[in-house]
Design a protein around this nucleic acid. Structure first.
Lengths: 209, 209
DNA sequence: TTGCTCCTCACGTCACGTGAGGTGGC
DNA sequence: TTGCTCCTCACGTCACGTGAGGTGGC
């Protein structure tokens, strides 16, 4: 019976860097990077200088990839792998807190994007420049638009629409349709909800309509 | 009545870079960076080469900051500000899709972190190295641990605990308490739920316990 | 006249991607 | 002998932070 699962017995180098990359999905460039920064130095080199990885190296790579997947920096991964005085539980708890902050920030951003997309849909302005100005105005004031601002917006819209050809209007309509198609039903619903919030009280669509 | 809201009349340069930075929260270094890449080139310089920003520049900066806040790259921001053939609606819709992917990925990561923290709490292993190995094993198999693996884990835990002094055990207990305190109640609840899922059927805590 | 503000390099960050130019391995 | 794999520089990415060393402005 063989003892290949015993500890301590380090088998002869077997893996070439390309094989390892193909087997693990880690790029050759990344493996060289990990070598350079001392995170994963292959146990051997052949006479020509080619890296040779042992099974022990491969195990370390697997751990490295797992830890990297937690969003840790390579420095942190290295300290964990080498047991350099870091408590993994605290580190992962910190990471959890960071991820939750990221999620919260991303969700706020999502809300903002939906609000702005809703306003753009309402405004239906063709010139990017004017959209940029609208965006600036919307994000400058964190509150919903005042009735005055909305009125101005609508007035502007009417003026622009009056100058557009039927072809332009049809094109704009197609664009809005494409935008709608690109959104998930949930997003579309929330967009409509956000747009309703954006409108001053009394401006909402008729409930029974 | 004055006409300071009229278009076209560009007032004399007024803002110095430091003043602008203080007023907007954008760092001096960032303002110089925006100048260098052509994103926000101040309208003037004084004889000594100091940047002088006009109110028009300031407006552009406000728009820049707003767009940057959507998570767009500076290149994208520049193209929007200059109206270089980009449809803002499509761009923001793309951005929305990206943000939602980010949220989904971060939520998966959050779940993984909670699972691992739960397992580490169960295992209560003191050596970072062994924790790393546990992590490697846990993330290598995406499924819950098999009863065999869990048994091995527990056996290991017992063996280690048997070798620890009462002081060590007390220290470990304090660490776990600190970890718990660092988690939100929601996280703590989910951690317990995840740990229950991790256990093979029949290993859960007694419902009425 | 003294700080304060401003200036331009220019390196560092982070985890690699992407060639450039050259040599060993099957 | 011919591709294929491997090697080492070394620049580019992205949005700046952080000095270094020097000069104008109030």
């Amino acid at each position: 019976m063989d003892m290949d699962s015993a500890e301590g017995a380090d088998p002869a180098p077997t893996w070439r860097i390309g094989q390892l990359a193909a087997a693990t999905g880690v790029s050759v460039r990344s493996l060289r990077h990990y070598d350079r920064i001392g995170l994963l130095v292959p146990s051997g080199r052949n006479p020509a200088g080619h890296r040779r990885y042992t099974d022990t190296d491969v195990r370390r790579l697997h751990q490295l990839v797992a830890l990297r997947g937690f969003g840790l920096s390579l420095r942190q991964v290295g300290q964990l792998l080498d047991g350099t005085g870091l408590d993994p539980r605290e580190l992962l708890a910190q990471q959890l807190a960071r991820v939750e902050q990221d999620i919260a920030a991303a969700q706020r951003l999502r809300g903002t994007l939906l609000r702005v997309l809703g306003a753009l849909d309402t405004a239906a302005q063709p010139q990017p420049t004017q959209l940029v100005e609208l965006i600036g105005r919307m994000t400058a004031v964190q509150r919903p638009l005042t009735p005055e601002q909305l009125a101005e917006l609508i007035e502007q819209r009417e003026r622009m629409a009056a100058q557009l050809s039927p072809e332009d209007l049809a094109e704009m309509s197609r664009r809005r349709a494409r935008l709608r198609e690109s959104l998930s039903p949930q997003d579309l619903a929330e967009l409509h909800r956000q747009r309703a919030e954006l409108l001053p009280p009394g401006w909402g669509q008729p409930v029974g309509g």
